[in-house]
């Protein structure tokens, strides 16, 4: 995973074009249209009709997006400063310890963590967000560290030799040059959040997991497929949007 994320980032760094990849949104739109057409050919019973009503789908989708957005924001606020801190000489010794915790966070089964936390602290959206953050911190954290470490040491030496302070070197050299790698980590985090947010339904925190689980319980393929397709479309769609954002925040020249 680490290698994938990094090589993706470096591959991106050498690409110069700012063209949008319009293939992804077209495929996603086509998937949604097909889903709609397929559903309209089905005879929906009353249970299916209730779960697949516009209001039900809208609420689940909004809840899902909210969970993802809040968790991702918290990850950004936590992981980037910690990542930056861990690359400073005085804190470097802490890096293996923090990475160990972050690795456990990602390796632990989400459902297990969710259940454990809800037994300890009760159910609801807050606990779901804690689980998501616990799970999705690693990519941003790891890529912030990697992104700063991959900055050519000759550049830092040049900066120091020209009289830039440590703070100026961080702000004007290390951080801008780490952006592509950090953004690659952020994309991974977003996709993980969208995926894991489906289990939030088990502690009554809503999301598209409601629809998927309803499909399983009621043994209705139509519901199950709808929940699955919507989750996948959101994951890929947000990843595409983040890729677009990456093109804009990446400094010119690199």
């Amino acid at each position: 995973m680490a290698v994938d994320t990094l090589s993706g980032a470096f591959g991106g760094a050498t690409r110069k074009s700012r063209s949008y990849n319009l293939g992804t949104p077209l495929v996603l739109a086509a998937a949604l249209v097909l889903l709609y057409l397929w559903l309209s050919t089905q005879q929906l019973d009353s249970m299916e009709a209730r779960v697949l009503s516009a209001a039900s789908i809208r609420d689940a989708t909004l809840a899902h997006l909210t969970l993802t957005a809040i968790s991702t924001s918290i990850v950004v606020v936590i992981a980037i400063p910690i990542g930056v801190l861990l690359t400073r000489p005085f804190a470097r010794w802490l890096t293996p310890w923090v990475m160990a915790v972050a690795n456990v966070g990602q390796a632990a089964p989400a459902l297990g963590v969710l259940v454990l936390l809800s037994i300890l602290f009760g159910i609801g959206t807050k606990i779901a967000i804690v689980t998501l953050v616990f799970h999705a911190t690693l990519p941003v954290l790891r890529n912030t560290i990697a992104g700063i470490q991959q900055v050519d040491s000759a550049l830092l030496e040049a900066g120091r030799g020209m009289g830039m302070s440590r703070r100026q070197i961080l702000r004007r050299l290390e951080l801008p040059l780490a952006v592509p790698v950090v953004m690659a980590g952020l994309r991974t985090t977003i996709v993980i959040c969208v995926g894991i947010a489906t289990v939030a339904t088990f502690i009554n925190a809503g999301g598209l997991g409601d629809i998927v689980v309803a499909g399983i319980k009621l043994q209705r393929t139509s519901i199950l497929v709808t929940g699955g397709v919507l989750t996948a479309v959101i994951a890929l769609g947000l990843d595409w949007l983040a890729g677009l954002a990456e093109k804009y925040v990446r400094p010119q020249g690199i």
Binding site: A154, E157, A158, M162, G163, R172, L173, G253
Partner: peptide
């Protein structure tokens, strides 16, 4: 002060070290 000193001494290295994200 080291940074002040360095700002008044020109410094050129073999790897050049131009900052790629600046014009």
């Amino acid at each position: 002060e080291p940074n002040e000193l360095r700002r008044h001494i020109g410094y050129v290295i073999q790897q050049i070290g131009l900052f790629p994200h600046m014009t």
